[in-house]
Design a protein around this nucleic acid. Structure first.
Lengths: 230, 230
DNA sequence: CTGGCATCTTGATACTTTCTTGATACCTTT
DNA sequence: AAAGGTATCAAGAAAGTATCAAGATGCCAG
């Protein structure tokens, strides 16, 4: 149905919980979708573009925290964790990975609804586009695809991570140290060479003239910057 | 001192809780402020512009939910409720009034900190850093970009540092020695030449007529001054 | 287990930008 | 006109950057 009710994606592998949530939420206020495992959840996040995700941490195929982390690579969609795990460490890990809220089962339906409304309040007031188009360069963070003049370009994992970092901060200067810390870890803080090589490689794949960069600009003595969206 | 630690406003009338929270949060990561009742909380929200508010619902002078409602009339600052009341109805009321999170006492310090980080994440990412606009000159400190008549100007690291210093103190006179110490270090205190060369270079990049400076003004015998914001 | 493949790391080298410095010209005040 | 402070130019030195390519690493398929 092409309605415009708020879309909620329920990620849980237990049919009982799925049923319970559907009953609780199915008052015609929401358009409900579901996924039974982590990979399905990631796919569904791309395809259904939910306004809120209700995520159980105990999934059969991958760790729930990893699901959060992957979604946060490209999306700001509010994630409310529903879990039986009441240990503080679990909560902290999930929240720091990017979750917005954490509810411990069992919880009241009223509270769940209220917390969903909180999440929706934020979701609706900000709708950022997950596809960055800058002149002839197109980066689809959700699908992990990069196009130059319509042609798909294949990047190595490091190259893609580097480009993603630049895209997320498009327009801002990222210092060498910020990039090195983010991608190679604190051990490489004093080793800008590895970064330069990767920037060079990226440019040769993305730019039409690598020696006259159009997208990835050098800020001498400081770092690099991706051209801002026009 | 004009530090920029995240500001947290603690609203609670019990000294014991105040002490507990101050201890828990006082790891030099936050700048803490407090209010003992609802009216003080509203006033403090205006004056200290906190990045997060920790609010106890049981205040002596007015209902906590009413405090939330009043703040929400003009501010989007994240509000995390800390309360002994565990009734679902209380949670729903507070959340629907505009609170972002609701923690029932007793709670773990780790969880509290994690939920504060969640709130800060949102608070900080939607707060754009100020842009200094002085006539036709525009300095965006967050993006490290300088525009003159809409055209981007590229500055060397030293030139940018110098301009940044001037911008931060726009309108005030900075002595030669202050600038030299700040940018070149104490070893250059008696060497104003290097500063003059850089001021000259900056002017040629920013001013339409470098010999008749409009932005970077010379205070003969004293130092330099950037024209104040109009 | 082994070879092949893609990727990552590292070193050498050429190249570019930025910094420093000295020489010199320019104001402005007395 | 002299003096003290200021502005500009340009060249060498220093610092930072780009690129190629060889060796190291790790993974997958046969």
């Amino acid at each position: 149905m092409g309605n415009n009710l708020p879309r909620i994606l329920i990620v849980d592998d237990e049919p009982a919980i799925q049923r319970f949530l559907r009953t609780a939420l199915d008052s015609c206020e929401f358009s409900l979708h579901q996924a039974e495992n982590g990979h399905a959840a990631l796919a569904a996040t791309v395809t259904t573009k939910p306004d809120v995700i209700l995520l159980d941490l105990g999934l059969p195929d991958m760790d729930g925290v990893e699901v959060i982390r992957r979604i946060r690579q490209w999306s700001q969609v509010p994630i409310v964790v529903l879990s039986v795990r009441d240990r503080e460490g679990d909560k902290v890990k999930a929240l720091d990975a990017g979750a917005d809220d954490y509810l411990t089962k069992p919880f009241g339906v009223g509270e769940l609804l209220a917390r969903i409304r909180v999440a929706l309040r934020r979701s609706l007031q900000q709708a950022p586009e997950p596809v960055y188009r800058i002149d002839e360069l197109e980066v689809d963070l959700a699908r992990r695809r990069v196009l130059v003049r319509g042609e798909e370009v294949s990047l190595t994992p490091t190259e893609y991570e580097l480009l993603r970092l630049l895209v997320v901060h498009a327009g801002k200067v990222l210092t060498h140290r910020q990039i090195l810390k983010q991608i190679w870890g604190v051990g490489y803080l004093e080793q800008p060479h590895v970064l330069r090589v990767n920037i060079s490689n990226l440019r040769h794949k993305l730019e039409s003239d690598a020696s006259r960069p159009h997208y990835i600009l050098t800020e001498t003595g400081v770092g690099y910057r991706l051209k801002a969206k026009s």
